[in-house]
Amino acid sequence: MLTPEGRSDPYPALAALRLAAPVHRSAALGSHVLTRFADCQEVLTGPAFLVPDRAWCAREVPDQRGRPGADFFYSSLLGTNGAEHARHRRLIVGAFGARQVAALQATTEKITDELLDGFADATASGGTADFQELVGRPLPVALVGALIGVPGAEQGRLEQLGRGAGRLLEPLRSPEDWARADRAVTELRAYFTGLLAERRAAPADDLASALLDQCRAVDPPPTDLELADLLLLVFVAGFETTTGLLGTAVHALLTHPEQLALVRQDRALVPAAVEEALRWDSPVLMTERLAARPVTVAGVPIPAGGSVTAVLAAANRDPQRHPDPDAFSVRRPDHRALSFGHGPHHCPGAALATAEGTTLIARMLDRFPALTLAGPPVRRDAVALRSFDVLPLATTG
Protein backbone atom coordinates (compact mmCIF):
# COMPACT_ATOMS: atom_id res chain seq x y z
CA MET A 1 0.00 0.00 0.00
CA LEU A 2 2.96 2.32 0.55
CA THR A 3 4.53 1.73 -2.89
CA PRO A 4 3.55 3.41 -6.18
CA GLU A 5 2.17 0.07 -7.42
CA GLY A 6 0.19 -0.41 -4.24
CA ARG A 7 -1.23 3.09 -4.39
CA SER A 8 -2.38 2.44 -7.95
CA ASP A 9 -3.99 -0.94 -7.20
CA PRO A 10 -3.84 -2.13 -3.59
CA TYR A 11 -6.45 -4.86 -4.00
CA PRO A 12 -4.35 -7.92 -4.97
CA ALA A 13 -2.00 -7.36 -2.04
CA LEU A 14 -4.91 -6.73 0.34
CA ALA A 15 -6.62 -9.94 -0.78
CA ALA A 16 -3.41 -11.90 -0.18
CA LEU A 17 -2.99 -10.29 3.23
CA ARG A 18 -6.58 -11.15 4.18
CA LEU A 19 -5.86 -14.82 3.48
CA ALA A 20 -2.43 -14.92 5.12
CA ALA A 21 -2.91 -12.69 8.16
CA PRO A 22 -6.27 -10.91 8.52
CA VAL A 23 -4.93 -9.21 11.66
CA HIS A 24 -1.42 -8.28 10.58
CA ARG A 25 1.08 -6.37 12.68
CA SER A 26 2.62 -3.75 10.38
CA ALA A 27 5.95 -2.38 11.51
CA ALA A 28 5.71 0.40 8.89
CA LEU A 29 2.43 1.69 10.31
CA GLY A 30 2.99 0.66 13.93
CA SER A 31 -0.49 -0.81 13.84
CA HIS A 32 -2.46 -4.03 13.48
CA VAL A 33 -3.93 -3.98 9.96
CA LEU A 34 -7.42 -5.45 9.56
CA THR A 35 -8.69 -6.61 6.16
CA ARG A 36 -11.90 -8.53 6.93
CA PHE A 37 -15.30 -6.85 6.91
CA ALA A 38 -16.47 -8.24 10.26
CA ASP A 39 -13.26 -7.25 12.06
CA CYS A 40 -13.26 -3.72 10.60
CA GLN A 41 -16.93 -3.22 11.46
CA GLU A 42 -16.32 -4.41 15.02
CA VAL A 43 -13.47 -1.96 15.51
CA LEU A 44 -15.39 0.97 14.02
CA THR A 45 -18.51 0.25 16.05
CA GLY A 46 -17.41 -1.26 19.35
CA PRO A 47 -16.90 0.80 22.54
CA ALA A 48 -13.52 -0.83 23.08
CA PHE A 49 -11.96 1.37 20.38
CA LEU A 50 -11.34 5.11 20.20
CA VAL A 51 -9.91 7.55 17.67
CA PRO A 52 -6.52 9.14 18.43
CA ASP A 53 -7.30 12.38 20.25
CA ARG A 54 -5.55 15.32 21.88
CA ALA A 55 -4.49 13.30 24.91
CA TRP A 56 -3.02 10.63 22.64
CA CYS A 57 -1.14 13.27 20.66
CA ALA A 58 0.34 14.80 23.81
CA ARG A 59 1.39 11.38 25.05
CA GLU A 60 2.59 9.66 21.88
CA VAL A 61 3.80 12.45 19.59
CA PRO A 62 4.63 15.33 21.95
CA ASP A 63 6.84 16.96 19.31
CA GLN A 64 3.67 17.71 17.29
CA ARG A 65 1.95 19.58 20.12
CA GLY A 66 1.34 23.20 19.25
CA ARG A 67 1.34 22.58 15.51
CA PRO A 68 -1.85 23.98 13.94
CA GLY A 69 -2.34 20.80 11.90
CA ALA A 70 -2.07 18.51 14.91
CA ASP A 71 -4.21 20.79 17.08
CA PHE A 72 -6.97 20.71 14.48
CA PHE A 73 -6.73 17.01 13.64
CA TYR A 74 -6.69 15.76 17.24
CA SER A 75 -9.31 18.08 18.71
CA SER A 76 -11.95 18.46 15.98
CA LEU A 77 -14.82 16.09 15.22
CA LEU A 78 -12.24 13.70 13.71
CA GLY A 79 -10.21 13.49 16.90
CA THR A 80 -12.70 13.40 19.75
CA ASN A 81 -14.41 10.57 21.59
CA GLY A 82 -17.43 9.97 23.80
CA ALA A 83 -19.36 12.94 25.12
CA GLU A 84 -17.03 15.47 23.53
CA HIS A 85 -17.48 13.88 20.11
CA ALA A 86 -21.27 13.77 20.58
CA ARG A 87 -21.23 17.45 21.50
CA HIS A 88 -19.38 18.39 18.28
CA ARG A 89 -21.49 16.10 16.13
CA ARG A 90 -24.77 17.45 17.50
CA LEU A 91 -23.91 20.84 16.00
CA ILE A 92 -23.75 19.65 12.39
CA VAL A 93 -25.62 16.37 12.05
CA GLY A 94 -28.88 18.21 11.40
CA ALA A 95 -27.36 19.93 8.38
CA PHE A 96 -27.03 16.60 6.55
CA GLY A 97 -30.41 14.96 7.15
CA ALA A 98 -32.68 13.73 4.38
CA ARG A 99 -34.67 16.98 4.37
CA GLN A 100 -31.56 19.13 4.11
CA VAL A 101 -30.06 17.00 1.33
CA ALA A 102 -33.36 17.17 -0.58
CA ALA A 103 -33.39 20.95 -0.17
CA LEU A 104 -29.94 21.10 -1.78
CA GLN A 105 -31.02 19.01 -4.77
CA ALA A 106 -31.93 21.98 -6.95
CA THR A 107 -28.54 23.56 -6.21
CA THR A 108 -26.80 20.27 -6.96
CA GLU A 109 -28.57 20.00 -10.31
CA LYS A 110 -27.84 23.62 -11.24
CA ILE A 111 -24.13 23.38 -10.45
CA THR A 112 -23.85 20.00 -12.19
CA ASP A 113 -25.49 21.30 -15.35
CA GLU A 114 -23.27 24.38 -15.44
CA LEU A 115 -20.11 22.31 -15.08
CA LEU A 116 -21.27 19.80 -17.69
CA ASP A 117 -21.90 22.72 -20.06
CA GLY A 118 -18.23 23.60 -19.74
CA PHE A 119 -17.21 19.98 -20.16
CA ALA A 120 -19.36 19.73 -23.32
CA ASP A 121 -17.71 22.84 -24.76
CA ALA A 122 -14.23 21.47 -23.98
CA THR A 123 -14.95 18.15 -25.69
CA ALA A 124 -16.87 19.49 -28.69
CA SER A 125 -15.77 18.42 -32.17
CA GLY A 126 -13.88 15.40 -30.88
CA GLY A 127 -11.82 17.18 -28.24
CA THR A 128 -10.75 15.63 -24.93
CA ALA A 129 -10.84 17.13 -21.46
CA ASP A 130 -9.86 16.27 -17.91
CA PHE A 131 -13.09 15.34 -16.15
CA GLN A 132 -11.58 15.88 -12.71
CA GLU A 133 -10.43 19.39 -13.52
CA LEU A 134 -13.72 20.50 -15.07
CA VAL A 135 -16.28 18.53 -13.05
CA GLY A 136 -14.97 16.03 -10.49
CA ARG A 137 -13.23 18.58 -8.29
CA PRO A 138 -15.28 21.78 -8.78
CA LEU A 139 -18.68 20.12 -8.25
CA PRO A 140 -18.20 19.07 -4.60
CA VAL A 141 -16.22 22.23 -3.85
CA ALA A 142 -19.03 24.40 -5.18
CA LEU A 143 -21.75 22.44 -3.40
CA VAL A 144 -20.08 22.31 0.01
CA GLY A 145 -19.12 25.96 -0.46
CA ALA A 146 -22.77 26.84 -1.09
CA LEU A 147 -23.79 24.77 1.94
CA ILE A 148 -21.38 26.56 4.26
CA GLY A 149 -21.70 30.03 2.76
CA VAL A 150 -18.35 30.36 0.98
CA PRO A 151 -18.62 32.75 -2.02
CA GLY A 152 -17.75 31.22 -5.39
CA ALA A 153 -14.79 33.57 -5.83
CA GLU A 154 -13.14 32.15 -2.70
CA GLN A 155 -13.75 28.46 -3.37
CA GLY A 156 -10.76 27.75 -5.63
CA ARG A 157 -8.25 29.18 -3.16
CA LEU A 158 -9.83 27.33 -0.26
CA GLU A 159 -9.78 24.08 -2.25
CA GLN A 160 -6.01 24.32 -2.68
CA LEU A 161 -5.62 24.95 1.04
CA GLY A 162 -8.00 22.07 1.77
CA ARG A 163 -5.84 19.67 -0.23
CA GLY A 164 -2.96 20.66 2.02
CA ALA A 165 -5.01 20.00 5.13
CA GLY A 166 -6.01 16.65 3.61
CA ARG A 167 -2.43 15.42 4.01
CA LEU A 168 -3.32 14.93 7.69
CA LEU A 169 -5.32 11.86 6.65
CA GLU A 170 -2.21 10.06 5.43
CA PRO A 171 -1.01 7.22 7.70
CA LEU A 172 2.61 8.36 7.35
CA ARG A 173 3.21 12.10 7.15
CA SER A 174 6.46 13.63 5.94
CA PRO A 175 7.84 16.91 7.32
CA GLU A 176 6.61 18.50 4.08
CA ASP A 177 3.11 17.11 4.73
CA TRP A 178 3.10 18.62 8.21
CA ALA A 179 4.37 21.99 7.00
CA ARG A 180 1.77 22.12 4.23
CA ALA A 181 -1.01 21.10 6.61
CA ASP A 182 0.07 23.68 9.21
CA ARG A 183 -0.06 26.49 6.65
CA ALA A 184 -3.42 25.31 5.32
CA VAL A 185 -5.06 24.95 8.74
CA THR A 186 -3.80 28.37 9.85
CA GLU A 187 -5.26 30.09 6.77
CA LEU A 188 -8.51 28.11 6.78
CA ARG A 189 -9.10 28.77 10.47
CA ALA A 190 -8.62 32.48 9.88
CA TYR A 191 -11.01 32.43 6.93
CA PHE A 192 -13.80 30.56 8.72
CA THR A 193 -13.38 32.64 11.87
CA GLY A 194 -13.95 35.70 9.69
CA LEU A 195 -16.95 34.10 8.00
CA LEU A 196 -18.54 33.39 11.38
CA ALA A 197 -18.01 37.02 12.41
CA GLU A 198 -19.77 38.13 9.21
CA ARG A 199 -22.70 35.81 9.91
CA ARG A 200 -23.06 37.11 13.46
CA ALA A 201 -23.49 40.57 12.01
CA ALA A 202 -25.66 39.47 9.07
CA PRO A 203 -27.10 35.93 9.27
CA ALA A 204 -27.74 34.02 6.03
CA ASP A 205 -29.33 30.75 5.00
CA ASP A 206 -26.18 28.63 5.32
CA LEU A 207 -24.35 26.28 7.66
CA ALA A 208 -22.20 29.03 9.18
CA SER A 209 -25.34 30.82 10.41
CA ALA A 210 -26.97 27.55 11.45
CA LEU A 211 -23.97 26.68 13.64
CA LEU A 212 -24.25 30.00 15.42
CA ASP A 213 -27.95 29.32 16.02
CA GLN A 214 -27.12 25.88 17.44
CA CYS A 215 -24.64 27.18 20.03
CA ARG A 216 -27.25 27.56 22.74
CA ALA A 217 -28.32 23.92 22.34
CA VAL A 218 -24.87 22.58 23.26
CA ASP A 219 -23.36 22.49 26.74
CA PRO A 220 -20.80 23.90 27.09
CA PRO A 221 -21.31 26.24 24.14
CA PRO A 222 -18.65 25.85 21.43
CA THR A 223 -15.81 28.32 21.20
CA ASP A 224 -15.18 30.32 18.04
CA LEU A 225 -12.23 28.05 17.28
CA GLU A 226 -14.38 24.93 17.62
CA LEU A 227 -16.95 26.39 15.22
CA ALA A 228 -14.26 27.38 12.73
CA ASP A 229 -12.76 23.89 12.92
CA LEU A 230 -16.17 22.33 12.25
CA LEU A 231 -16.57 24.45 9.11
CA LEU A 232 -13.01 23.63 8.10
CA LEU A 233 -13.67 19.91 8.48
CA VAL A 234 -17.01 20.02 6.64
CA PHE A 235 -15.40 21.91 3.77
CA VAL A 236 -12.34 19.70 3.37
CA ALA A 237 -14.09 16.37 3.95
CA GLY A 238 -17.01 17.54 1.82
CA PHE A 239 -14.93 17.84 -1.33
CA GLU A 240 -11.97 15.49 -0.82
CA THR A 241 -13.91 12.23 -0.49
CA THR A 242 -16.63 13.23 -2.95
CA THR A 243 -14.06 14.11 -5.60
CA GLY A 244 -12.73 10.58 -5.22
CA LEU A 245 -16.22 9.10 -5.49
CA LEU A 246 -17.16 11.04 -8.64
CA GLY A 247 -14.00 10.11 -10.52
CA THR A 248 -14.18 6.48 -9.45
CA ALA A 249 -17.85 6.11 -10.41
CA VAL A 250 -17.30 7.54 -13.89
CA HIS A 251 -14.12 5.52 -14.44
CA ALA A 252 -15.70 2.29 -13.16
CA LEU A 253 -18.64 2.58 -15.54
CA LEU A 254 -16.49 3.44 -18.54
CA THR A 255 -14.14 0.51 -17.88
CA HIS A 256 -17.06 -1.90 -17.44
CA PRO A 257 -19.09 -1.33 -20.62
CA GLU A 258 -21.55 -4.11 -19.90
CA GLN A 259 -22.43 -2.44 -16.59
CA LEU A 260 -22.63 0.96 -18.25
CA ALA A 261 -25.06 -0.53 -20.78
CA LEU A 262 -27.27 -1.80 -17.98
CA VAL A 263 -27.41 1.64 -16.38
CA ARG A 264 -28.12 3.33 -19.72
CA GLN A 265 -31.01 0.91 -20.29
CA ASP A 266 -32.42 1.31 -16.77
CA ARG A 267 -31.79 4.67 -15.12
CA ALA A 268 -33.23 3.30 -11.88
CA LEU A 269 -29.84 1.57 -11.52
CA VAL A 270 -27.95 4.88 -11.21
CA PRO A 271 -28.08 4.97 -7.36
CA ALA A 272 -26.93 1.34 -7.28
CA ALA A 273 -24.04 2.19 -9.61
CA VAL A 274 -22.89 4.92 -7.21
CA GLU A 275 -23.18 2.59 -4.20
CA GLU A 276 -21.23 -0.10 -6.07
CA ALA A 277 -18.51 2.41 -6.96
CA LEU A 278 -18.20 3.26 -3.27
CA ARG A 279 -17.83 -0.42 -2.43
CA TRP A 280 -15.56 -1.31 -5.34
CA ASP A 281 -13.01 1.47 -4.75
CA SER A 282 -13.59 3.35 -1.50
CA PRO A 283 -12.57 7.04 -1.50
CA VAL A 284 -10.90 6.46 1.90
CA LEU A 285 -8.63 3.44 2.03
CA MET A 286 -8.13 3.13 5.79
CA THR A 287 -8.78 4.64 9.20
CA GLU A 288 -7.07 4.18 12.58
CA ARG A 289 -8.47 3.31 16.01
CA LEU A 290 -6.91 2.73 19.44
CA ALA A 291 -7.81 0.02 21.93
CA ALA A 292 -9.37 1.66 25.00
CA ARG A 293 -8.50 -1.46 27.04
CA PRO A 294 -6.88 -4.82 26.38
CA VAL A 295 -8.98 -6.52 23.72
CA THR A 296 -8.86 -9.42 21.30
CA VAL A 297 -9.61 -9.07 17.58
CA ALA A 298 -10.08 -12.34 15.71
CA GLY A 299 -8.03 -14.13 18.36
CA VAL A 300 -5.16 -11.60 18.29
CA PRO A 301 -4.56 -9.71 21.56
CA ILE A 302 -4.35 -5.91 21.27
CA PRO A 303 -2.96 -4.12 24.33
CA ALA A 304 -4.57 -1.03 25.81
CA GLY A 305 -3.55 1.91 23.63
CA GLY A 306 -2.60 -0.40 20.78
CA SER A 307 -3.29 0.86 17.27
CA VAL A 308 -5.50 -0.96 14.77
CA THR A 309 -6.05 0.14 11.18
CA ALA A 310 -9.33 -0.80 9.55
CA VAL A 311 -8.64 -1.04 5.82
CA LEU A 312 -12.06 -0.05 4.53
CA ALA A 313 -11.20 -0.85 0.93
CA ALA A 314 -10.19 -4.40 1.88
CA ALA A 315 -13.28 -4.89 4.02
CA ASN A 316 -15.47 -3.85 1.09
CA ARG A 317 -13.92 -6.61 -1.03
CA ASP A 318 -14.10 -9.34 1.59
CA PRO A 319 -15.63 -12.38 -0.16
CA GLN A 320 -17.27 -13.37 3.13
CA ARG A 321 -19.27 -10.14 2.89
CA HIS A 322 -19.57 -9.67 -0.87
CA PRO A 323 -19.35 -12.73 -3.17
CA ASP A 324 -17.15 -12.17 -6.24
CA PRO A 325 -15.90 -8.98 -4.61
CA ASP A 326 -13.56 -7.81 -7.37
CA ALA A 327 -16.39 -7.66 -9.90
CA PHE A 328 -18.04 -4.29 -10.46
CA SER A 329 -21.75 -5.15 -10.57
CA VAL A 330 -24.52 -2.56 -10.48
CA ARG A 331 -27.06 -5.34 -9.87
CA ARG A 332 -25.27 -6.66 -6.80
CA PRO A 333 -28.02 -7.59 -4.30
CA ASP A 334 -26.35 -5.78 -1.40
CA HIS A 335 -23.89 -2.90 -1.91
CA ARG A 336 -23.58 -1.96 1.77
CA ALA A 337 -20.00 -1.10 2.58
CA LEU A 338 -17.79 0.70 5.10
CA SER A 339 -16.69 3.45 2.72
CA PHE A 340 -18.11 6.22 4.92
CA GLY A 341 -17.08 4.49 8.13
CA HIS A 342 -19.43 3.02 10.69
CA GLY A 343 -20.52 3.66 14.25
CA PRO A 344 -20.02 6.98 16.08
CA HIS A 345 -17.69 8.39 13.41
CA HIS A 346 -19.83 7.50 10.40
CA CYS A 347 -19.51 10.38 7.94
CA PRO A 348 -22.48 12.75 8.44
CA GLY A 349 -22.19 13.92 4.83
CA ALA A 350 -22.58 10.45 3.28
CA ALA A 351 -26.10 11.09 1.97
CA LEU A 352 -25.05 14.37 0.36
CA ALA A 353 -22.04 12.75 -1.33
CA THR A 354 -24.11 9.91 -2.79
CA ALA A 355 -26.76 12.41 -3.95
CA GLU A 356 -24.04 14.34 -5.80
CA GLY A 357 -22.82 11.15 -7.44
CA THR A 358 -26.31 10.06 -8.44
CA THR A 359 -27.15 13.45 -9.94
CA LEU A 360 -23.90 13.62 -11.87
CA ILE A 361 -24.07 10.11 -13.34
CA ALA A 362 -27.70 10.51 -14.39
CA ARG A 363 -27.04 13.82 -16.12
CA MET A 364 -23.84 12.63 -17.81
CA LEU A 365 -25.65 9.62 -19.25
CA ASP A 366 -28.38 11.91 -20.59
CA ARG A 367 -25.99 14.35 -22.21
CA PHE A 368 -23.11 12.18 -23.43
CA PRO A 369 -24.24 8.90 -25.01
CA ALA A 370 -20.77 8.34 -26.52
CA LEU A 371 -18.73 9.20 -23.42
CA THR A 372 -15.43 7.32 -23.39
CA LEU A 373 -11.97 7.30 -21.84
CA ALA A 374 -9.47 9.34 -23.84
CA GLY A 375 -6.19 8.36 -22.22
CA PRO A 376 -4.65 6.84 -19.11
CA PRO A 377 -5.90 8.37 -15.84
CA VAL A 378 -3.46 9.59 -13.20
CA ARG A 379 -3.98 8.51 -9.60
CA ARG A 380 -3.46 10.91 -6.74
CA ASP A 381 -0.14 10.45 -4.96
CA ALA A 382 -1.69 9.42 -1.65
CA VAL A 383 -2.30 6.28 0.38
CA ALA A 384 -5.39 7.09 2.46
CA LEU A 385 -7.37 8.99 -0.17
CA ARG A 386 -8.30 7.11 -3.36
CA SER A 387 -8.84 9.61 -6.14
CA PHE A 388 -7.84 10.56 -9.67
CA ASP A 389 -5.88 13.73 -10.27
CA VAL A 390 -6.43 13.43 -14.03
CA LEU A 391 -9.23 11.57 -15.83
CA PRO A 392 -9.19 12.35 -19.59
CA LEU A 393 -12.52 11.78 -21.37
CA ALA A 394 -14.08 12.37 -24.75
CA THR A 395 -17.76 12.76 -25.60
CA THR A 396 -17.59 11.59 -29.22
CA GLY A 397 -16.21 8.37 -30.70
Rank of each mutant, 00 (worst) to 15 (best):
D205I: 09
A202Y: 04
D205R: 14
L233T: 14
A190V: 11
L211T: 04
R200I: 10
Y191F: 09
D205E: 15
D205A: 14
P222W: 05
D219G: 07
L196A: 10
T186M: 11
A208G: 01
Q214I: 02
S209C: 09
P221K: 11
T186W: 11
F192Q: 05
T186D: 14
P222I: 00
L230W: 05
R189Y: 08
D219K: 12
P221W: 08
A202W: 07
A208C: 02
R200P: 09
L196W: 06
A201I: 08
A201N: 10
D206W: 05
D206R: 05
L230T: 00
R216A: 15
T193C: 11
C215H: 03
R200E: 11
P220V: 09
E198D: 15
R200F: 09
R189Q: 13
D219M: 06
F235I: 02
C215Q: 13
E187S: 13
E187C: 11
A228L: 07
A210H: 14
A208K: 01
D219A: 14
T193E: 12
L195S: 00
A208L: 00
A217L: 13
L230Y: 02
P203L: 01
L195K: 05
D206H: 07
Y191W: 04
L195Q: 04
C215I: 03
Y191V: 05
C215A: 13
L233Y: 09
L188G: 08
P220L: 09
A201M: 06
A217N: 12
L232F: 05
L188S: 06
R189N: 14
A204F: 07
D229M: 03
A228E: 11
A190L: 12
V218K: 01
T193V: 10
R199G: 01
D213Q: 13
D206Q: 08
L196P: 06
L188I: 08
A208T: 02
E187F: 12
L195A: 05
R199W: 01
D213R: 15
L212W: 05
R199L: 06
L231Y: 02
P222T: 10
T193L: 13
L233Q: 12
A197E: 15
E226K: 07
R189I: 08
D219R: 13
A197Q: 15
L233A: 14
G194D: 07
